[in-house]
Design a protein around this nucleic acid. Sequence first.
DNA 1: GGAGGGAGTAAGACCGGTCTGTCTCCTACC
DNA 2: GGTAGGAGACAGACCGGTCTTACTCCCTCC
Lengths: 191, 191
Amino acid sequence: MQTELPPRERILDAAYELFSQRGIRDVGVEEVMVRSRVAKATLYRHFPSKDALVLAFLARREQRWTLGMVEAGARDRGRTPEERLLALFDVFDEWFHRDDFDGCSFVNVLLEMRWGHPLGRASIQYLENIRAIVRSMAEEAGLRDTDSFARSWHILMKGSIISAAEGDADAARRAQAMARALIEQHRRPQS
Amino acid sequence: MQTELPPRERILDAAYELFSQRGIRDVGVEEVMVRSRVAKATLYRHFPSKDALVLAFLARREQRWTLGMVEAGARDRGRTPEERLLALFDVFDEWFHRDDFDGCSFVNVLLEMRWGHPLGRASIQYLENIRAIVRSMAEEAGLRDTDSFARSWHILMKGSIISAAEGDADAARRAQAMARALIEQHRRPQS
DNA sequence: GGAGGGAGTAAGACCGGTCTGTCTCCTACC
DNA sequence: GGTAGGAGACAGACCGGTCTTACTCCCTCC
């Protein structure tokens, strides 16, 4: 039998599953405790408040989702920089078809908590980090106006995620088609 | 002095402001009561539950926002069918720059309540209604594959709304540029 | 026209449940 | 034996929803 993970890891694992699938307000700390088989005092020893736990969840989400699944997945699939950009939507396509598809936690938390709330602010920062990855890929591809490109690209990413949440599992393919046109319009030299 | 609106209207007005600006879970029925200057029994006489009140809010949101602001606004601004489609993002541009910009309530409620919950289901239906408007405009414009067109177009709409919620007030212009390319690709005959 | 009654409303007490967060008590292990 | 952790009671706040009380208005009927 495997040795059980230390309490802090169990808490973070449980929080990740619950928060990513069901959102923040719908999940109480007690549910996190039960799933991680941890006492309340232990949870509050490691995290001073629920908000702090959510912040830790968002950081883990960036590691696993933004960096692990999205960025690394796209970089693995494409050979050229442009292929890697487009592969972002291949990763999304596979993600949208998974039955445990859970949407973008950063968007979810932002809309659940709104601007102004610390968790909303943090989510905005993590979304900006995603745009930075796109921008860097666009620079590798030699595109022009990479900041504007990344913002437009991000519109396609977020819009397709919402559509997938509505039930359109093919939203990534539609977004990818528009993404191709966007690349075309950002090729040097000025068209 | 103007005569006060009947209680039901006062309740719906208060619910509209509160729910559209702050979401569902963050607003308690007591806050709706206070703002509408209505007693609790009165609220529960007109609406059997908070969920029923939220459903009424969503219906009013469709009337005011989907039909009143978005569709009517776009139809007023454009002369040709294609201009009317693109004018959707002119309406968005103005909306994004308003200081009381509140995002798309249907997306907000869907992400707050999730699939499965009756309010999430209702939101998905109202989002489908938006796509039906886009589809009908696309048919007027003589575009081909109008269902797929409307789904792609909707990705641009929702993505730009999320970007605006993040703080990018110019998201509508970026989406409009991609929208132009999308129209181009859906012109008859097959390009 | 005046009395009576019923419907609608305001104000708010109240109930059961849930939430976050604190605290106590006990066990196990190093 | 001291520290970390499990189990859970507890506090204080808030939630949705029910119910009571008192008042006002309007319709009706004599």
